[in-house]
Amino acid sequence: MTTSTTGGPPAADLDERRAGTSTSRFVAGKVGGALASLVFVVVLGFLLFRMIPGDPVATMTRDRPTSPEQLARLRERLGVDEPLWRQFLDYALGLLRGDLGTSYLYNRPVATMIGERLWPTILLVGTATVLAVALGMWLGVRAAWKRDSTFDRVHTGVALTLWSVPQFWLGLLLLIATQGLFPSRGMRSPDLPEGFLAETLDVAWHLTLPCLTLLAVIYAQYMLVMRSSLLEEMGSEYLTTARAKGLRDDLVRRRHAVPNALLPAVTLVFLQFGMVVSGTVTVEAVFSWPGLGLLTYDALRGPDLPLLQGVFVVLAGSVIVMNLLAELLYRVLDPRVRAA
């Protein structure tokens, strides 16, 4: 990786050049690691859905009567009678072309189905994450600043309790508690009113309950991390200095303590992505939200192995990419890591 600095001006001083080298080496290392993980995901997808079942066709048809001709056709379409290395090659080359195979239950290309379901999931996960980060950080800062106050005790307790709640149960509770106030399934009303505003409101109305459910479980993590991160800063001497300068308590918190404590929480946004994705599977199943989670849930009924395989590779792959972003972002945000 030493070649990356050769383009730099010769006048640049030594320190700067060394920093440049280590940055590009760091980035290359992280990207290389992520690529290796992606390859591993691809191999794992093959192992899980092709090799462990032994005979995928028998697994998929175990709960339903199937005629010999249907079985033969399915075997041929999945190519299970070919040697394993050939199957793996077909699968890996297909992935490179964006071909994830054909769904067994729906008889459609898996990639197309995932593409259709991607946006609803992004909408749900995105909204819930933004709200959870805002709420969690705000509560965490308040709780840490007034440590052991009633506010702190109550909110830490609530967060810990919500942390122990299975998401789907919370969703079911919300459904039963708001009986009929909000739609219980789907993303749009069947008799859709015309116009952009009406459509947006309709989607937002459908989004409320699933989003609340997801929010309730994930904000706790942000709050607890923000709280402990700020608590670590609380004893720092620069805060005493800031107070000695005569700054108001509010300003000491906003301008000095919080920016320093913000870092772990910010990177957590990306690191927690995997957990949020797992959460959407059950939440979408409860509310029939037409995203990737519901697609997984539906695919389980078969089990539709090509569809499950596609969803697995896409979800795992996107989590790895998000994680890579988190690690790169951490370096940009924290000068201490950059210098190290």
């Binding site: 993980s37 591993f40 899980l48 462990i52 797992s278 089990p303 192995l305 499950l308 989590v319």
Partner: peptide, 23 residues
């Protein structure tokens, strides 16, 4: 260490779903 990091990042529920659907 590499393998540990890999499994740490991977959403464990998704993996668990995959495993229990094929067994």
């Amino acid at each position: 260490l590499r393998v540990t990091d890999f499994f740490l990042v991977l959403p464990s529920l998704v993996l668990a779903i995959a495993l229990s659907s094929v067994l």
